[in-house]
Amino acid sequence: MTDITTNAASSGIRLDRKRLKAIARRSDRPGLIYLAQWLAFLLATGSLVVLAMGTPWVWPAMVLHGVFLAVPAYAMSHETAHGTAFRTRWLNEAVFWVTSLLYMEEPLHRRYTHTNHHSHTWHVGKDSQMPFDTPMDFKGWLLEVSGLALLRFHAKVLWQLATGSYSEIMRAVAPADELPRMTRNARLFIAVYAGIAALILAGVAWPLWLLLLPRLLGAPVMMAFTLIQHVEMQENSPSILESTRSFRSDRLGRFLYMNMNNHIEHHLFTQVPFHALPALQTELRAQLPAPDPGFWRTNLEVASVAARRSLGLNTRAASIRQAPHMITEGGFERVAQRTM
C-alpha cells in the first residue's frame, strides 16, 4: 500500500502553475448564478408537486422535485466543503451549512472525511469515504443506489457525534479539538430534523410533500451520480487516473452535478472551482484517459456488471473503464469493506 498523497503529482499529471492559477481563480458570480438557477428549478418542480396534489401524478412530480433537490444539494455541499463555490468565505460557509442539512451530514464531519478521501483516494484502510464494498455485487449496488446505505450511515454519524461516541475514523480524520464542535453541530442538526418532524406530525403538510418525501425519492439519482466516481476502479493506486472515473454528461447532468462528471480532473486539482472544471478538462485532455460514456450508460453498465458478478458470470463491461481485477468469472475476491 502506498503512503503518498493522491493528487496530480502522484498521478504524473503536470500543469503550468500560472495556467492553473488562472483556471482556479475565484469569483462569487458563478456560484450565485447557480444558486439562482437552482432555486428557480426548485420553485418550478415544487409548483408541479402542489398542482399534482391529490392525483397519482404527485409521485412523479415529487421524484422530479427530489432530483432537483437532492443532486444539487449533494453537489453544492461538496463544492462548499472544498470552499471553492464562492470567493467570499462567509457565503461559502452559509451555503455549506444549508446544503449539508439537505444532504444530512454534519458539516465538519463532511469536510474532514472528504479531505481524507482526497489524501488517500480509494486506499483500503485509509480512505474514509469508500461507500460500498469492492468489488461491488448486486446487493451492494441495490443498497447504494436506493440511498438506504447512505441514509443509515448519516443517521449513525449524527447519533455518534451527538452522543460523543466518536468512531475510530472520526478520531483519525479530525483534530481532537474539533470533536466537541462536531457534537454541537450534530445536536443542532437533529433539533432541526426533529422540528421538521414535529411540524409534519402537527399537520403541516408542505415539509412532507416538498422536502422529506422528495429528498428520499430523489436520492437514487443522487447516488447514481456519486456511485460511478470510483466504482470498478483500482484500489490502492497512487494514480487518480486509475482510481477515479470521469464521464461524459449532457447539459442537465452537468448542471445538477456541478460539472463533477470531470471527477478525475477534480481529484487532480481540488482547488479548481466547479465552473472552471470544463476549462481544466480541456487543458489536461491530452494527459487523461477518455471519459466514460454518459451518466445513464455508465450506470447501466455498472448495474449489469454488479448483477453478473453476483451470478458468477463474466464481469467485463461493454465500454466503461475497469481495473483488471474487476474482470472475473465464477467468483471474486473482496478487496475492501465499506467505510461509510
Binding site: 498523497t5 470552499g83 471553492t84 479531505t115 489524501s119 481540488t270 482547488q271
Partner: peptide, 8 residues
Amino acid sequence: ECPAHQGR
C-alpha cells in the same frame, strides 16, 4: 489557500 484541501 492550501492546494490540497483548501485550508485557509
